[in-house]
């Protein structure tokens, strides 16, 4: 069993050596992943709403709702929603595939966030355009979603 002092020393050493920092993705990784998922289409802001708690201490189970402004008819619907996190160890969260059969472009789920960060959702529309929305969630206390 590690004593508290040993644990503290380990933590300081790990932080100093950059090991802890390297374990998380940078926002550019999230951006790259999102470009890959949406096939490099130009992303426009607006029309996508992510609802996250402003502050939470339950980093392992953060409730998230994504809704997209769309009539969800045969001519105009949302094909897919991709969600990524900017500072998790791996940025991918989930992709949801929708069709006019859904009638409403709104999904909710629960996600892991290792620390305070921005979550991005990109909606692929049936006309080929891509819309994005962002939300920030502050994680307080605890060891994030990794422990």
């Amino acid at each position: 069993m590690l004593s508290r002092r040993e644990l503290l020393l380990w933590f300081v050493a790990l932080t100093a050596s950059g090991l802890l920092r390297d374990s998380e993705a940078a926002p550019r990784d999230a951006k790259k992943l999102l470009e890959k998922l949406t096939g490099g289409t130009e992303q426009r802001k607006g029309g996508v709403t992510i609802t996250l708690p402003a502050v939470t201490d339950q980093a392992r189970h953060v409730p998230m709702r994504v809704s997209v402004d769309s009539p969800m008819t045969e001519d105009d619907y949302v094909k897919a929603i991709h969600v990524v996190a900017e500072r998790n160890p791996t940025p991918a969260i989930a992709s949801f595939h929708l069709s006019p059969a859904n009638g409403k472009a709104e999904i909710s789920t629960r996600i892991r966030l290792i620390k305070t960060q921005i979550v991005i959702a990109a909606a692929e529309m049936s006309d080929g355009s891509v819309r994005i929305g962002k939300a920030r969630c502050k994680i307080t206390g605890g060891a994030g979603a990794c422990g």
Partner: peptide, 24 residues
């Protein structure tokens, strides 16, 4: 028998995954 909703879940999804969605 017809697919109405599909999700690809990655590491960022919480344990005991929960999903809610709509179908007409």
């Amino acid at each position: 028998g017809h697919e109405v909703f599909r999700a690809d879940l990655e590491s960022g999804t919480a344990s005991d995954p929960y999903l809610s969605f709509h179908v007409r």
